[in-house]
């Protein structure tokens, strides 16, 4: 069985659970619970463990999607998820600048622990208060437009939009893998 494991991460309320629910062909394993901290004041439930979704596109080939816990606590669950992941999508709400700090923290955590390809998915990009993608990139610490991961707009409720984001991630992974193979060939 060949499986690609993709982690869907991002701050609370970025749409991780919805993203997985929208594209998964199985009923996602939902671990939403009543939020126990300040999150509870605006989002009644949040993911305490992780979400899981699956897309099987052949007898022995599948995509597995893992959503990180919603509340910002980097515990053993993150370690398990990252260790096995091939790539990840960071979901960020374009209209919530207060989330950029948490997104930046997640990025630093992921970069430090796993050198895997990634895509930034911008949700709520049509909101009147949404920041432009260029500015979100700067707020996340990507100062040069030539040295930043691909950024795509995502509507987590729309299957086409989610599928397009997934395609972007897989293309990014394929490119990264080809570069790695070329690099290995040069070294040997």
């Amino acid at each position: 069985m060949e499986i690609m494991r993709i982690v869907i991460t991002g701050p609370v309320g970025a749409g991780k659970s919805t993203f997985i629910r929208t594209i998964s062909e199985i009923e996602p394993v939902d671990t939403d619970r009543k939020a126990t901290d300040e999150v509870g004041s605006w989002k009644q439930k949040t993911t305490v463990a992780m979400d899981f979704g699956r897309l099987q596109f052949g007898p022995n080939v599948a995509l597995h999607l893992y959503g990180t816990p919603g509340q910002e606590r980097f515990d053993f669950m993150w370690e398990i998820l990252i260790r096995k992941a091939h790539a990840f999508i960071l979901l960020v709400s374009s209209h919530r600048p207060q989330d950029f700090r948490a997104a930046r923290r997640i990025l630093a955590f992921m970069r430090h622990r796993a050198k895997i390809p990634m895509v930034i998915g911008l949700s709520h990009a049509d909101n009147p208060n949404a920041w432009p993608p260029e500015d979100i990139a700067i707020a996340l610490g990507y100062l040069s437009p030539h040295n930043r991961p691909p950024m795509v707009q995502v509507n987590a409720l729309d299957q086409g939009s989610v599928a397009a984001a997934m395609m972007k991630l897989i293309e990014t992974y394929a490119k990264h893998q080809a570069e790695q193979l070329n690099w290995d060939a040069v070294r040997h």
């Binding site: 499986i3 671990t31 463990a49 980097f74 398990i80 096995k84």
Partner: peptide
Amino acid sequence: EIPNISIEPSPSSPTPLPQPAEESS
């Protein structure tokens, strides 16, 4: 800032979940 893995257990006890398969990535 580089956050570390928290050694504190989660306050809620999560439902047992499918874990990533053991084969390497």
